[in-house]
Structures are given as structure tokens and as C-alpha cells.
Amino acid sequence: MGLLSKKDAKLITDPLLDNNPITIQVLGICSALAITAELEASIVMSVSVMFVLGLGNVVISLMRNIIPSKIRIIVQLIVVATLVIIVDLVLKAFAYELSKTLSVFVGLIITNCIIMGRFEAFALGNGPWRAFLDGIGNSIGYGAILIVVGFFRELLGSGTLLGIKVLGDPIEKTGLYAIGYENNGFMLLSPMALIVVGIIIWIQRSKNTSLIEEN
């Protein structure tokens, strides 16, 4: 990569696996679980978080020398809230149905711990370009988990992907349904999101044993 030095590239690749915001840093779980019943919603959520985190990191990093440290949390909240309002209005204008599905969870990006966590841990101490890369890297790591969970929940729960019936039609009994396959409606209920993420953590830590916690 000519554009990125090795150190910069690490900022993007690290959060994908070894320092994943959801499974390792345990940040931003609230929204990750609530909206993953459909793949489309998970993708939109990931893109929204990428926009907010990437731009927010740049803004905070540009202002890092002029923010008084006592009121920095309020300044950070205002920056995030402004960006989230932009996302919310864009969603309402161009994807109204989807913004109804996401309902309050777009607003809850504001208190998504991943955003405040990255502001505190990275943007306040680094320049804008590195902060931007860090924001993008972390939101890709976040989005990857969201998309994996959304993929399995929608596929197993309603037999569709992005609304397309990939397993055949359950009413007309075509495709897999012809040989007696049934959708597992349980996957669409909220508890299964937790269990799917639990299984992802399990797989990841069995592969990379250095991540195992003490009991």
C-alpha cells in the first residue's frame, strides 16, 4: 500500500480481529444486538456508525488542543449528536421504511460506547488522518460482526437474505422447503442475538488462545 504506511495500515486491520470493538473491547453492544434480525438493517447501521465514527474522530482530533478537559464529555456528546442528526435525517429522507425499523436505535448511536471509547482512547491524542483511519478501522470491525450476526439470523430465521428468498418459498413449498425444511422463527427473537454473538466469541477465542480471559 503506497498510500498508507505500515503503522497506519495496522490501524485499520487491527480492529478487524485481534482488537475487535465488539468481541474484545466489549464496546457498542447495545445496537449490535437489537437491529440484527435483518441483514439490510445491520448493513445500514454499520454504514451509519462508520460515517459518525470516521467524521467524529476527525472533528475531535482537530479540536483536541482547544477542548478544556473538564467539559470534554459534553463537547464529544454534542459532536456525535450533530452527526447522528444528519444520519437520521438522511435515512428519513431516502429510506423511510428502514428508518422505521431502526427506530430509536439510530439515536442511540450517540451513546454507543464504541464512539465515546474511540474519542477518549484515540482521537484526543492523535492527528486527524490517523484518527480517521482508526475510526474507519473500528467501524469496519464493528460492522463485520453486525453483518455476520445479521446474515445468520435472517438466513435461519426467515430464509431470506436482504429480503430475497434464497431458500425457496415457504408457502409454495419450493427449494429447501420442498424436502421439509422449516424456518427457525426463534432466530428472529432478541435472545438469539446474544447467543449468536456468544458463539462468535467462542469460535474466535478458540482460534486465538491468547485472548482467553480468566474465570
Partner: peptide, 26 residues
């Protein structure tokens, strides 16, 4: 309480907490 039980190593800590929360949600 779970500190005294033998959880599979890879599930310790975060993993088992997620799965227990899922069961509690059910």
C-alpha cells in the same frame, strides 16, 4: 457463582456472560 464452575476456556468471561444473558432473556 460461575467462578466456581469449569467453563470451557474459550467461553470464559465474556462468552459465557453473553450466552447466560440470552437464556435469561428467553
Amino acid at each position: 457463582k460461575i467462578r466456581y464452575s469449569s467453563v470451557p476456556p474459550a467461553l470464559r468471561g465474556l462468552g459465557i456472560t453473553f450466552i447466560i444473558t440470552g437464556l435469561m432473556a428467553i
